[in-house]
Design a protein around this nucleic acid. Structure first.
Lengths: 186, 186
DNA sequence: GGATCATTATTCGTACACGAACAAAACCGT
DNA sequence: ACGGTTTTGTTCGTGTACGAATAATGATCC
């Protein structure tokens, strides 16, 4: 119920309505390495550059899509009360058995400062435990508790549902394509 | 620079065979060919589900790609010292001229609580100004200052470079495809 | 051995992101 | 005109994200 009504054409922004035609015509043929210093394709721009619109850039679209994916996750996990990152960390731990806190962060794409908070919250809820590593006294090994294991495995069905809901706007073949491309941007 | 050493010494995860057995109602007895990578036939899934791996789900990949895009943005904008969301808000304001704070948030995909902080920080730096709306005394109109306009227009070249760097791993045709699909997931 | 460098974990500060609760103003049907 | 609903903006609390600084330990080189 309650239509989202996210149509912000209230006052301005209704005057012009051109189609994007072709996105970003930088004539890089292939493999533009991340060489810093390529300010812009200055110099040669024979074709009229399309206007820059922030809401059509990858960064903005990625932020939007990530917001939607997180919202869908929260809906499905409102009962379990796990955030996407908490579930990611817990799920990896259940698969791997035991990881140092730092390595767990790298595997789940979290900063050392970020994984610290995530692990602490999981520990406060009794889902993981931290054990000092005897061979390397800098490290803490993190491993799931029985409760954490039960919750993670029991939530896999919901997690699959979240993935399905997130990809729902795409047709099956498009999902495959999208995931293959998205993987290369990670 | 030290090799990242991102190799979780997985000795597990190889000899796994447990069957999920209870994920969703997928008890379709007629199992089509078990071709791998068959996508996700919505509804009845064939048997032999692949193991669930968090790091291959859309949500995780979107988070990762968004992190990378933000990092690239920060690199290019370290001199200007604008965050992606701050630039998005400012850029939209320069295009639209003047928007209420609430509408600005909707256009840039930010929660009312989020856009509030973003606008405040932009105002503290003298890039936007907030004016009370006389026709609707609940609203504040937000508009860019001369300085904000100058910064936003002057940064468009860098912003294009960020987009190019973010999409660099993909070939031009793939970028077009990816953006078209990503747009539909927003 | 001892100096140097790298890794691990922690803490601090800042910035998104959003649910929830709130007050003021606008809107609406009757 | 009135009362109920919606919209707008604010504040609070929690969680993710990360740069920077720090301390402790491990690894390496001379």
């Amino acid at each position: 119920m309650s239509s989202p009504k996210l149509s912000p054409r209230t006052r301005t922004a209704a005057a012009r309505r051109e189609e994007p035609s072709l996105p970003s015509g930088t004539a890089s043929p292939d493999a533009p390495p991340p060489s810093p210093g390529d300010g812009q394709p200055s110099g040669a721009a024979p074709e009229g550059e399309p206007p820059y619109r922030v809401t059509e850039q990858v960064g903005y679209l990625l932020r939007r899509a990530h917001q939607r994916a997180s919202a869908l996750f929260q809906e499905h996990f409102s009962g379990i009360d796990l955030t996407p990152t908490q579930f990611a960390a817990l799920s990896v731990l259940v698969d791997e058995g035991e990881l140092s806190q730092n390595l767990l962060g790298r595997v789940t794409a979290m900063d050392p400062a970020t994984i610290q908070g995530v692990v602490m919250r999981l520990r406060d809820r009794g889902l993981v435990e931290r054990v000092a590593d005897h061979t390397d006294r800098r490290r803490f090994m993190v491993r799931p508790t029985a409760a954490g294991r039960a919750i993670a495995t029991g939530a896999i069905a919901e997690a699959r549902a979240v993935t399905a809901a997130t990809l729902a706007p795409l047709k099956p073949a498009e999902r495959k394509t999208f995931l293959a491309l998205l993987r290369r941007l990670g």
